[in-house]
Amino acid sequence: MPVNTDNRLCTRCVLPENFPGVKFNDEGVCNHCLQAPSAADVSENVARLHGEMVAAIEANKGGRDYDCIVAYSGGKDSSYTLKALVENYGLKCLAVTVDNGFMSDQARVNSKAVTGALGVDYQLFTPAWSFMSGMYKESVSNPELHTKAAIKRASAICNSCIGLINVYMIRLALMHGAKLIAGGYIGGQVPKDTAILELNLDLYMKTREATIGRYETSFGEDTRKYFDIPEGLLQASQMKKITILNPMLALNIGEEDIIAQLAPLGWKPTLDTGSNSSNCRLNDFGIAMHYNAHGFNPYVFEISEQVRHGLMTREVALKKALSIPSLDEVRWQAKKLEIEIDAVR
């Protein structure tokens, strides 16, 4: 449902004035747009990232059953990522979906169709509902759960889910000896210049403790099963690092082109996942809760980034950014999670 907002929006992208760190000039243009690189610089940067990504792929492929574990939601971005990794770079991929209990039926069909068409092994992991529902409930009610900056990129429930998925992908990479992990993150969802991230595993383990401690306090005794890497697994793998790829940052392709390229693989848009997701039926609930708590759409930064990169028109962006589900529209998700939504109001 489109909302009327009292907050001033950037006249070039759609960032609202209440987004953390945003400042406007006299013409109503935000600091992100004013400091954005030119189209030529964007192209140059994307080309550089692409070159670096290809080098990282070449350095880490071969010799194992899987070169790359792909965090695959069945949505359009991760489907395109998987397609590119297999068809353009010849990677042997294991596509892995984590079913959070709200996966769209069409996304299931799409996952099977795309992995089938690409000839890719596919794994579906469904964590216990008792844990997932508790995790989501805590995510909505505990504002101290994630880092403070996390509100800029995703809703609290998405941040929890992404955290769980990331850890599961690392576990699988260690189990299979895969040196690469890839996801379908697009500009604005992850910081610029993170098309390739080298994950030093010792460092990762050491810096995890504060986060896991917070999660454990909130999510309970099974937390480490889903958010920790067993020391024995790390030692048995004999791996010191994993390279994380966010190929979409090095490809710079718009939504319409993605959908057109996925159609021959049998991928079809979902109709039950709201305007900002193509796989998850809980996403709208996360948006509604985030808007209720912070006053802006958790997708607004990535939407604005797409506008700045010329991958989305401002008109489309405006529609997406102001499309906030009402609390009544997400009542069914709240009921499934046993959250008293009227208390949230």
Partner: peptide, 30 residues
């Protein structure tokens, strides 16, 4: 900008940015 740290009397130059919830593993890598 990236971690929304506001240095003041509560968050000082000596505050542990992990324990204060400003940086996590991926934030550290970035």
């Amino acid at each position: 900008t990236n971690s929304l740290v506001e240095f003041d009397s509560a968050v000082t130059d000596d505050s542990d940015l992990f324990k204060e919830g400003f940086i996590d593993s991926f934030g550290y890598i970035e």
